[in-house]
Design a protein around this nucleic acid. Sequence first.
DNA 1: CCTTCACATGAATCGACCT
DNA 2: AAGGTCGATTCATGTGAAG
Lengths: 380, 380
Amino acid sequence: MSMKRIRPVLVHTQEAPHSGWKDKILQGHCVSELAKLPPASVDVIFADPPYNLQLGGDLLRPDHSRVDAVDDAWDQFESFEAYDAFTKAWLLAARRVLKPNGTLWVIGSYHNIFRVGASLQDLGYWILNDVVWRKSNPMPNFRGRRFQNAHETLIWASRDKDAKSYTFNYEAMKAANDDVQMRSDWLFPICSGSERLKDEDGCKAHPTQKPEALLARIILSSSKPGDVILDPFFGTGTTGAVAKRLGRHFVGIEREDEYVRIAKERIDAVEPLTDEVLRIAAGKRAEPRVPFASLVESGLVAPGTELTDAKRRYRAYVRADGTIAVGDDAASIHRIGARVQGLDACNGWTFWHVKRGKDLMPIDELRRTARERMQVAAPA
Amino acid sequence: MSMKRIRPVLVHTQEAPHSGWKDKILQGHCVSELAKLPPASVDVIFADPPYNLQLGGDLLRPDHSRVDAVDDAWDQFESFEAYDAFTKAWLLAARRVLKPNGTLWVIGSYHNIFRVGASLQDLGYWILNDVVWRKSNPMPNFRGRRFQNAHETLIWASRDKDAKSYTFNYEAMKAANDDVQMRSDWLFPICSGSERLKDEDGCKAHPTQKPEALLARIILSSSKPGDVILDPFFGTGTTGAVAKRLGRHFVGIEREDEYVRIAKERIDAVEPLTDEVLRIAAGKRAEPRVPFASLVESGLVAPGTELTDAKRRYRAYVRADGTIAVGDDAASIHRIGARVQGLDACNGWTFWHVKRGKDLMPIDELRRTARERMQVAAPA
DNA sequence: CCTTCACATGAATCGACCT
DNA sequence: AAGGTCGATTCATGTGAAG
């Protein structure tokens, strides 16, 4: 995989080799097209690889040598091995273009997902969740010989085990789920009706078109507006259409002319949502940090003020330097809160209270006031 | 494992070395104990192998209590390679004792299930279904860093690709599911309360005891009365207890003295059902909860839609992630409803309305529509 | 006796930032 | 690079005491 062979494809400017690679569909095989993209440049990858082991087309080993097409004459072991080689090849190429804190989503069924999951673990990806897409209207099992196959499986993984700063819009997901945290099982209908793209004959244009709602949940949970979403098995461009609508960039890779044509047309027709609608519900983690000392400095809390816990079991006094004291013991609101309770840790903002008339108010309320004043002083 | 060593057995006489092997717990390592059983003698295998959990340090709840995690020695493996070797060893030994038309069930989480699935495919097992156990009461994700891990995965496989005469009680499953085919996603609570076995100190006797309802569905779906159910990771004997109650034979393999003792006692106390018709107690069929976001995702409410209260005093608009916004303030329909009224809580479903012509319609009506569309899903 | 509240707990790969 | 500090974070259910 020599870098020398990398050339600009579908390039609209002449200058930089990688310029203008966003919001485009690259036509070609996913492994070779991935090799042309700049390294560590993509925030999220969504991949819907072939499920079937009887692949008609090209299979590449990790060294890019070609595997002969799988047919029924091949024994089982060989065909699994061929699928694994194909899987590891694209997973490896995808990992190169993923940012260190980027994440990968793969969808599959029991035919392939166990092989995909094991392969990505072998390559160093670190699984964050497996997520189940429960289909509200799955196809029945016609022969009555098995359970109705009513779900597909998604794997969500970070590039590395130690990557801790991946994007997960926890608060947005929680708010979207009636204020309880989003679970690993999601219910969506399959893609049908007017959403399902048809060709001239009225037949479905693509055999495995995914519902836009599924892609929306994926993109909203694990990316921010302006991020780049890559789909190496683009098909008719569901990922691109949803990414564009949600204010993200997309990159699609697809081999078939016809799918590329349909996807382009589809995405061109998409109207992006406004920034207002797209802003992500942010939790406390995203808010600016306000040290307790600055509340004292700004006069929101006077030195000497008495602090107590909600049940008035413990008392402390505010000192001019922003520490608080119990007896001779002085330290931060967190340290002292932990110490009086005999705990290792404590969030002093929610533990300590000030008197307001007969009632108590957590000092976290004062922090909110301080933050509001900061907003006025220095608007973003 | 050479084919030459396999002999026709299934011995019914006293002389044979394998006589009297049913309804017993074999104490020892699963691979060596499996080797002592007659070949092709077991109808169903249920296996709950170690999950290979990779825990960091301690995990604290928001209230600072410590989570009692699985850190037992039997769940520690050096590497993926070591885990794979262990997995293939027991899967191979298990395959020898399985009848040609017997089936295997394995349960796992994302930590191990992809490796187990790929391994069993490599060994010649043929996957019939993957089944998702949706937990009605899973442990939360305490740090808000991922989706709540709310399910585990089961794989159901036949011994060979060509085995067509495995047992699947299609009609019984359909009858147990309100006369529609049983789906591949099952809803059960985790094992707790009086069903959870405790030791002398009142602590849980086994860290990963499975609910009997889960085993009952497995056994009822894929075996007949009188069949032999083998569990190579017997633990405290849930498989044996349920098999006995349902009129099946069991064989358990377990290493730990203490688990063997508890399991024996437990199974001895089980009274087999005499009823010809064995039915699972129908699970709860509560109304499915519909998050507001799913209305946006499904297109029932467009992003940007204006919401008002019944008297049109307050206005909010819908965002793409299913939160709603008033000015810069965005959160769930409930939170924003509470905030504009200056209340602590609010039922957003009845508070907020959308325009329908000149009139207003509570969004609760839209929820009803969404539920009706979802009824097809028929939760277990 | 009923309601309410406090508390316990379950297969978990569960930070970010500054010095 | 390692270490210290700040400070964010939970849902369903069962049990048992309190009112």
